[in-house]
């Protein structure tokens, strides 16, 4: 039972962070389908930082360094999306898909090249961080508290305040709803969209490193992050682009995801003989059904996906 709660919170933290990232990007008017790729890149940066550090370094240094690198790598990578879709009016769906493919390929190439350089026979794509990972965990009587749970909660509160209570957040949302109007009152739409995408890179990178430290202590980069970025997109839509709802949805989806990991541990669930794949499918099915009933009056930012052209009406 503690295991289930622990995994639920962990997966919910990942989903919450990444979905909030998507939320910022979409409120600025850029659809970020590349979240999956950004997660991979953030995870790669974080994992390499961890594996390069001595496990005996003070925990706080490991945590801060890993998080910083993951954030920076995530932001750098997301700037590829910003660059193409803001200045070159590229198709955002296309660029997002390209980023997803590129991230997995680049991470695989990098890790493999690194591994084979150290040992010519080693063609795996695995990065290990067994000792370093312990820095993220505080044991609270059987329940392994992970610092990322706290970070996710803080991110949620900060996102809410920024989006609804600050000038920046309201301007950001204006750029996603009606960029022409925003421009007419002197808001620099390009800058705002850059900010939105970079924040999504920050949160996406953070979510990536959070995901690969959840439960495991090594990561095979040729599988990317196994669709978690897409699940986060589902969380964002299910949460109707609102931080509070995103937080709750993340918990719900995290629960299902955790259930698929640990359902065999519950005798009554195991007795039902439902294949594990059903639990994996659940979040997607639920969000599809909910989408079918709510999309008629969707709260999606109105101008998302449309490149901003100063000259157009």
């Amino acid at each position: 039972m503690t295991l289930l709660i622990q995994y639920t919170f962990l997966f919910a933290s990942v989903l919450c962070l990444v979905a909030l990232g998507g939320c910022f990007s979409e409120h600025s008017g850029i659809i970020n389908l590349g979240l999956e790729g950004i997660m991979v890149m953030g995870a790669l940066g974080g994992a390499l930082t961890m594996s390069s550090m001595d496990p005996s370094t003070p925990a706080i240094i490991i945590v801060v360094a890993t998080i910083c690198v993951a954030i920076i790598v995530g932001m750098l990578y997301s700037s590829l999306l910003a660059f193409a879709s803001i200045h070159f009016k590229a198709d955002q769906t296309l660029v997002g898909t390209a980023l997803n493919l590129l991230a997995t390929a680049a991470a695989t190439v990098y890790v493999r090249a690194m591994n084979t350089k150290i040992n010519p026979d080693n063609v795996s794509t695995t990065v290990q961080y067994i000792g370093q990972k312990k820095a993220f965990i505080v044991n609270l009587g059987g329940f392994e508290f992970n610092w990322f749970m706290l970070i996710a909660v803080i991110a949620l509160i900060v996102s809410y305040v920024v989006l609804y209570k600050t000038r920046f957040g309201l301007r950001l949302q204006a750029c996603g709803e009606n960029p022409q109007a925003a421009d007419s009152v002197g808001i620099n739409v390009y800058k705002m969209r850059w900010a939105g995408v970079l924040i999504s890179g920050l949160l996406g990178g953070l979510g990536g490193i959070c995901y690969i430290t959840a439960g495991v202590s090594e990561w095979k980069f040729d599988v990317g992050v196994a669709g978690f970025g897409f699940l986060a997109l589902a969380v964002m839509i299910f949460g109707q682009w609102k931080p509070t709802r995103i937080g709750l949805t993340a918990l719900l989806f995290g629960f299902f995801r955790a259930l698929s990991n640990v359902y065999s541990g519950f005798s009554w669930l195991a007795a039902l003989k439902i294949p594990g794949t059903v639990y994996n499918m659940m979040p997607y099915i639920i969000s599809l059904i909910v989408l079918a009933f709510t999309s008629k009056n969707s709260r999606a930012p109105k101008a998302e996906g449309i490149p901003y052209d100063k000259g157009s009406r």
Binding site: A84, L94, A98, L101
Partner: peptide, 12 residues
């Protein structure tokens, strides 16, 4: 894979 992903990106 890296090259084909780059090609998609440039197609944007």
């Amino acid at each position: 894979d890296l090259i084909s992903a780059l090609i998609i990106y440039f197609c944007g």
